[in-house]
Amino acid sequence: TTYKLILNGKTLKGETTTEAVDAETAERVFKEYAKKNGVDGEWTYDDATKTFTSTE
């Protein structure tokens, strides 16, 4: 399943996707990605669109 991440950081904005077996796995991948890029925001998830959003 393809999951999408929308980053709305103070210094980094953008989108990326990952293939994962479930939302929990995708969330771990995306949170590590955000951390590596210095984004520490509030997380939301929309199951209908398989989209995570992190907003600082």
Rank of each mutant, 00 (worst) to 15 (best):
T1Q: 12
T1H: 13
T1A: 10
T1L: 09
T2Y: 09
T2R: 12
T2E: 10
T2D: 05
T2C: 14
T2S: 08
T2M: 13
T2L: 14
T2Q: 11
Y3P: 04
Y3T: 03
Y3A: 02
Y3F: 11
Y3S: 03
Y3V: 03
Y3M: 02
Y3Q: 03
K4V: 09
K4C: 08
K4L: 08
K4A: 05
K4E: 03
K4F: 13
L5N: 02
L5H: 02
I6S: 03
I6N: 04
I6G: 01
I6F: 06
L7W: 10
L7V: 08
N8P: 02
N8Q: 10
N8K: 12
N8T: 08
N8C: 14
N8M: 12
N8V: 13
N8Y: 12
N8L: 13
N8D: 11
G9M: 07
G9P: 02
G9Y: 11
G9D: 03
G9F: 15
G9R: 03
G9T: 09
G9W: 14
G9I: 04
G9H: 14
K10V: 13
K10W: 11
K10S: 10
K10P: 11
K10C: 14
K10Q: 11
K10D: 08
T11A: 11
T11Q: 11
T11D: 11
T11W: 14
T11P: 04
T11Y: 14
T11R: 11
T11L: 12
T11G: 09
L12I: 14
L12W: 15
L12H: 14
L12D: 05
L12A: 10
L12F: 15
L12K: 10
K13E: 05
K13Q: 12
K13Y: 12
K13P: 04
K13M: 10
G14V: 15
G14M: 15
G14C: 15
G14E: 13
G14T: 15
G14A: 15
G14I: 15
G14N: 11
G14W: 15
E15H: 10
E15C: 15
E15M: 14
E15Q: 10
E15A: 08
T16K: 09
T16L: 15
T16Q: 08
T16V: 15
T16Y: 15
T16G: 04
T16W: 15
T16D: 03
T17H: 09
T17R: 07
T17N: 05
T17M: 09
T17G: 03
T18G: 02
T18C: 15
T18V: 15
T18Y: 14
T18H: 07
E19D: 10
E19G: 04
A20V: 04
A20I: 02
A20D: 02
A20R: 02
A20S: 06
A20T: 05
A20E: 04
A20W: 02
A20Y: 02
V21D: 12
V21H: 12
V21R: 11
V21G: 10
V21Q: 13
D22M: 03
D22G: 04
D22A: 03
D22L: 04
D22V: 02
D22K: 03
D22T: 06
D22I: 02
D22R: 03
A23K: 15
A23G: 04
A23T: 09
A23N: 06
A23F: 15
E24F: 10
E24T: 10
E24I: 12
E24P: 09
E24D: 10
T25E: 14
T25D: 09
T25F: 06
T25V: 08
T25A: 13
T25Y: 07
T25C: 08
A26L: 01
A26H: 00
A26E: 00
A26I: 01
A26P: 00
A26S: 01
E27D: 05
E27S: 09
E27T: 03
E27K: 10
E27A: 11
E27Y: 15
E27R: 09
E27V: 05
R28V: 08
R28H: 08
R28C: 07
R28I: 10
V29R: 10
V29I: 14
F30M: 02
F30C: 00
F30P: 00
F30T: 00
F30R: 00
F30I: 00
K31F: 06
K31G: 02
K31M: 08
K31C: 07
K31Y: 05
E32R: 06
E32Y: 05
E32L: 08
E32K: 06
E32N: 07
E32I: 08
E32Q: 09
Y33R: 02
Y33A: 02
Y33F: 12
Y33K: 01
Y33V: 05
Y33W: 13
Y33L: 05
Y33N: 01
Y33M: 04
A34Y: 02
A34F: 02
A34Q: 02
K35W: 10
K35V: 10
K35P: 01
K36F: 10
K36N: 12
K36H: 09
K36D: 10
K36C: 12
K36E: 12
K36W: 08
N37E: 09
N37S: 10
N37L: 15
N37M: 15
N37W: 15
N37P: 01
G38P: 01
G38I: 02
G38S: 05
G38V: 03
G38N: 09
V39W: 14
V39M: 09
V39T: 04
V39G: 03
V39F: 15
V39S: 04
V39H: 10
D40Q: 13
D40K: 10
D40V: 13
D40W: 14
D40F: 14
D40P: 05
G41M: 05
G41N: 03
G41V: 05
G41I: 06
G41P: 05
G41C: 05
G41F: 07
G41H: 04
E42R: 09
E42Y: 13
E42H: 12
E42M: 12
E42I: 14
E42L: 13
E42N: 11
W43R: 00
W43F: 10
W43Y: 02
W43I: 05
W43Q: 01
W43C: 02
T44E: 10
T44K: 09
T44M: 09
T44Q: 10
T44H: 11
T44D: 08
T44F: 11
T44Y: 09
Y45I: 00
Y45K: 01
Y45V: 00
Y45M: 01
Y45E: 01
Y45N: 00
Y45D: 00
Y45A: 00
Y45H: 00
D46T: 04
D46P: 00
D46N: 10
D46G: 01
D46H: 06
D46C: 09
D46S: 06
D47G: 08
D47I: 10
D47A: 14
D47C: 07
D47M: 08
D47W: 08
D47Q: 10
A48L: 11
A48F: 10
A48E: 12
A48G: 09
A48I: 11
A48Y: 10
T49W: 03
T49E: 05
T49G: 04
T49R: 06
T49K: 06
T49I: 06
T49L: 07
T49S: 10
K50N: 07
K50I: 01
K50T: 03
K50Y: 07
K50A: 04
T51D: 01
T51C: 04
T51W: 01
T51L: 03
T51G: 01
F52Y: 05
F52S: 01
F52M: 01
F52P: 00
F52K: 00
F52Q: 01
F52V: 00
T53K: 06
T53V: 09
T53Y: 14
T53F: 10
T53W: 09
T53P: 00
T53I: 09
S54G: 05
S54V: 15
S54A: 15
S54Y: 14
S54W: 15
S54P: 03
S54D: 04
S54L: 15
T55P: 02
T55F: 08
T55E: 07
T55A: 06
T55R: 06
T55Q: 07
T55N: 09
T55M: 08
T55G: 04
T55C: 07
E56G: 05
E56L: 07
E56F: 08
E56Y: 08
E56T: 07
